[in-house]
């Protein structure tokens, strides 16, 4: 096993984009779009609309990234987000009408807290099954994904739940000094996670588990506890994404954002996160998200189909993943 997997890991490592490649790519895109679109591309409006669209995918990608770093995968993030979004939506639509003052504020806070609690519960389930029962993450989260979706559909009967108070809507649509509030939330997720990964014992252990879980355990690390916490954290991020999503759409549903699932993996891998674990930085992921968003917004301005955007995203992933291979060839 060791030889083949080592090689696979090395290939995976080499296949991930570096920050340098990404910056170069971003610069090239800017030049191309500056020529084809002109000033409109740099207008405040365009920038703001980009900033509104990025946070959902960004927070979900962070959730995916955490699992990937540990050598796993979390397929249940979207389903978790929808389940916790529906929980919040149920509570809001049920108790907000007719309430006022402190109760009005309290119910909103409690609803969001309940959403987080649901997300944490899913994370505990994932973490327990993966870390303590030894189920492979892809299988475990495939199961919880279906389970969560099932509960969400079962309880909502597939209906959309909508109509929330202003503060909630503000989370998804408001701005602070021109900066979308959702972007601030993304920053409040990304910075602490970057700090956690780079500068805390927990973060260091996550990377080590991603490269070799057994050797990490032999070094005295309680790898099961680390994995459990990690999947709870990943789930909680899905909970944050849930709040942003339901606020932006002013509604919740069991099937929102399902197409995001594979895009989060795409963004993470483009951002240099090794799909086999152990390597990757939040900074790389954010750069990848900006690149994806720039392409999407530019195509929008050029009146090109969003589906062409998808195809270009796929193409860029292959190109960036192939860079180390060609670089290696050129060096030789």
């Amino acid at each position: 096993m060791s030889n083949a997997s080592l090689r696979r890991r090395m290939v995976g490592l080499a296949g991930s984009g570096t920050v340098g490649t990404l910056l170069l790519l971003l610069l090239a895109l800017w030049v191309v779009f500056a020529i084809t679109i002109g000033d409109r591309f740099f207008s405040a409006n365009t920038l703001q609309s980009m900033a509104f669209q990025m946070p959902e995918l960004g927070i979900l990608s962070l959730a995916m990234m955490l699992a990937l770093l540990s050598g796993g995968l979390n397929l249940s993030i979207i389903a978790t987000a929808n389940l916790s979004g529906l929980t919040i939506a149920f509570l809001l639509t049920r108790y907000i009408p007719g309430s006022q003052g402190i109760a009005w504020v309290g119910i909103q806070a409690l609803a969001i807290a309940a959403g987080f609690a649901v997300a944490a519960l899913v994370g505990l389930l994932n973490g327990f099954v993966i870390a303590y029962l030894g189920v492979s993450p892809i299988l475990a989260t495939l199961g919880t994904m279906t389970l969560c979706k099932g509960v969400a559909i079962g309880l909502s009967r597939g209906n959309v739940v909508s109509g929330f108070p202003d503060p909630i809507v503000f989370i998804g649509n408001g701005t602070v000094f021109g900066v979308p509030f959702a972007l601030i939330i993304l920053a409040f997720c990304a910075f602490p996670i970057a700090l956690m990964l780079n500068a805390t014992p927990f973060g260091a252990k996550v990377y080590m588990i991603g490269s070799n879980e057994q050797a990490t355990r032999y070094s005295g690390v309680n790898t099961r506890a680390v994995l459990l916490k990690l999947y709870v954290l990943s789930s909680l991020l899905a909970g944050v994404a849930a709040v942003v999503m339901l606020a932006r759409f002013n509604s919740a549903n069991a099937a929102y954002g399902e197409s995001y699932l594979l895009v989060t993996i795409l963004a993470a891998v483009l951002g240099g996160i090794d799909p086999f674990g152990g390597f990757g930085k939040v900074g790389g992921l954010m750069l990848a998200l900006i690149i994806l968003q720039v392409i999407s917004s530019a195509f929008n301005l050029l009146n090109l189909s969003q589906f062409l955007t998808l195809a270009i995203w796929g193409g860029i992933l292959i190109v960036v993943a192939a860079v180390p291979h060609f670089a290696g060839k050129m060096l030789r």
Partner: peptide, 17 residues
């Protein structure tokens, strides 16, 4: 397989404990 985490840096390995 058990003593070291080969893909990771010397720094990461030496500080792990």
């Amino acid at each position: 397989a058990l003593g070291l985490i080969l893909n990771q840096s010397v720094t990461a390995n030496v500080t792990l404990t």
